[in-house]
Design a protein around this nucleic acid. Structure first.
Lengths: 164, 164
DNA sequence: AGACTGAGTCCATATTTGATACTTAGGTAT
DNA sequence: ATACCTAAGTATCAAATATGGACTCAGTCT
């Protein structure tokens, strides 16, 4: 699977592709940056605003969409000396993005951060050993990328309802 | 690392974050869809156009950006009975996106494709066993997500030059 | 009561998108 | 050699989105 053969069409039609469907609600720069911050633990409107530099209108819109698509949920909180407010926390669905985002981070550290020491490393809490994202088979062995193959199911087409 | 503590700021400033930088050139719906098709083996302008339904002007723009950022390269090709043309192939850098994209696909099959049988599975070519994307440590053992920790380097800030 | 603050909304302008039509260049058939 | 065909683009322009600044709102603190 290292490099796929030339094709005129993808084997999965775009209207049946959950990956393509997910790009509808998280496939834009601002949503991705919000999710990045959220995965680091940021939760509040103004914190997203100042950290990301996103226009307030766009932030309000994106948070609404992220909540609507189930990635984030509003929660009440109350800081001393101020009135109760809402914060935006990742749901289990949103939290599950950590693996793909960390895979993406390894990619960007390697290919965008050209030789610079990555600012963050992942380690095993228990013994401090370095951690990476990789393909593994069902016996827990690492699979080299060129031993990969794709199997396509014969299925009655059920279009993905574009979660929007 | 299961759920990170609440923070007012991300530990990595956005201007030093290679992940955030990469969202500049691939963090939009169309670029992501083009890359999805490209990872399946699609290479030609008109094939992208008809498969994705992207407006021709936007396609031209996105291909230009993807080439400029090093993810794709133009190559000559010649089909029988027609004149030489250009096609857009993934570079090594673009090909390396397969892992993060497949991680993302597993996520979307699980969370967007709610219980439906995923249209594609990854298997080991050699023995057909099922393959997934996971965290592994340097001894090749799978790491459960809650045994993960992040280590931040003390580094002199070198802003990521926004590859644009 | 009045100032403060986080969390938004409103509005005018600038940019991007999307749909359709047009252009280009070499190969092929006549 | 001429006319036609096709993939790969450009041009144009109305409609949709994004941007940035000002404005609103509702509890808290003084």
């Amino acid at each position: 699977m290292a490099t796929p053969p030339f094709r005129r069409q993808s084997p999965i039609h775009i209207s049946h592709c959950t990956l393509a469907a997910s790009f509808d609600f998280l496939g834009d720069r601002w949503s991705l940056l919000i999710l990045r911050s959220a995965l680091f633990g940021v939760r509040r409107y103004d914190d997203f605003h100042t950290e990301i530099g996103i226009p307030r209108t766009v932030l309000a819109d994106r948070l609404k969409r992220l909540v609507a698509s189930g990635l984030m949920a509003q929660q009440d909180y109350k800081a001393d000396g101020s009135r109760p407010r809402k914060e935006y926390c990742l749901t289990e669905m949103g939290e599950a993005l950590r693996l793909p985002f960390l895979a993406m981070r390894e990619w960007s550290d390697r290919w965008v951060g050209q030789g610079r020491t990555p600012p963050m490393r992942l380690v095993r809490q228990s013994d401090g050993s370095e951690i990476h994202v990789a393909f593994v088979d069902d016996k827990g062995r690492i699979v080299p990328p060129d031993d990969l193959a794709a199997r396509f199911e014969d299925w009655a087409p059920h279009p993905v309802d574009s979660a929007e």
